[in-house]
Design a protein around this nucleic acid. Sequence first.
DNA 1: CATTTTATTGTCCCATTGGTCAATGATTGA
DNA 2: TCAATCATTGACCAATGGGACAATAAAATG
Lengths: 216, 216
Amino acid sequence: MSTWIRHAWIGPVKLTRLSDIRRKELRQAAFAVLEREGIAGATLEKVAAQAGASKGIVLHYFRNKQELFEHAMREANAVLCHAVVARLQRARTPMERLDAVIEGNFEEHLFLPPLCHAWLSLCAEVPRDEKLARIQKVIHARMRSNLLSGLRGLASPELAEEIVLGVTALIDGLWLRLGLQPGSVTREQAVRQVKDFVTGRLALRQPAPVELASAG
Amino acid sequence: MSTWIRHAWIGPVKLTRLSDIRRKELRQAAFAVLEREGIAGATLEKVAAQAGASKGIVLHYFRNKQELFEHAMREANAVLCHAVVARLQRARTPMERLDAVIEGNFEEHLFLPPLCHAWLSLCAEVPRDEKLARIQKVIHARMRSNLLSGLRGLASPELAEEIVLGVTALIDGLWLRLGLQPGSVTREQAVRQVKDFVTGRLALRQPAPVELASAG
DNA sequence: CATTTTATTGTCCCATTGGTCAATGATTGA
DNA sequence: TCAATCATTGACCAATGGGACAATAAAATG
């Protein structure tokens, strides 16, 4: 997976700590197992096998199973986050920021059933894992903030807030559809759904007379 | 839960077979456990305890764990379905049918975190359980058909199809939100989201010049 | 009533699982 | 080079899980 071993910067570079490598490998292995087996079938043994190591090593780097999967969720989230951020940096106008969030959430190499399955399994555990709940909360907060920043100037704060709820739900729902019936939604369909949703909601109520200085 | 023991119809009535009673009790117990413990923590022992019986009885009425939870999903689905159907029967116009589906999917006594949690856990297993996948498919087909029947005359078939995808995804997404952050969505908010979505989408493109005989 | 079916329980079994631990091997640093 | 730390393994353990089964109780049936 990861081809780099050392940071590519200047100076007498520290080698990446072995523990960091292992932990990353194991997080990813855990996620891979989750994709295949779901939360019920994800065992330490399988994670170890997936990583090509022994079960002992997993518990050497993670206190327990729970912690492992919490880190797996962070990992997956980081990947998705990265996709959005990359697009967000290229965006110049609020509208573009909006599109960045939407398209970033359906990246071609991410909007895939296996990833969705794993994600779903983790979500299903959220109600019983405080840490997972917190991660989930952070993710949502970031998405909300990104969307709001894109909607500023396009809608009143109240409408914006409403659109955010709709958009986040719609995105989640489209992911769910993908997971439940792979092939029933394409990336393009998903993106268009969300964009049309926003357009529809913005058109419905008046675009809220804006009087903000320098939006964009 | 169910207060009736005999069918309320005419003639020398057969008592409801005990096996039917037990099976229902166990399905419901299974679902209750799912609500609390998730799929990973749902054991036969716990289901038995929940139903006030011994583990043996569970496997007496269900071939195995998998079958039990498949029936649990059917049970839950039937309840939700019932809510929609009841409203659907009262609906006279297509628009009312649309509303029936939407509101039925957010019934006050159903749109609750625990139910959502259990549902989520079952959905997470869909990719690894052929039966669950089939149930899920049926559910979705019914919802799709209900929505389409409500949209007939209001939108072109293509637009209708698109709206259906959006509505189903949005509904699922709103449920997911409820599960992930109980309290973040009220029933009223959810209903309005979906209704506004439909309105927005119908307004966006022209209402598709209808030339169907007797729509409604 | 006798017999046959059904209900129900508790026990038993074996595989699996999360987790601990001691032993060993590899790195590192003085 | 030697000690100390870190990495890794495999054995071990207690607990738990799904499921099979025999034994018993209860109904149903003729």
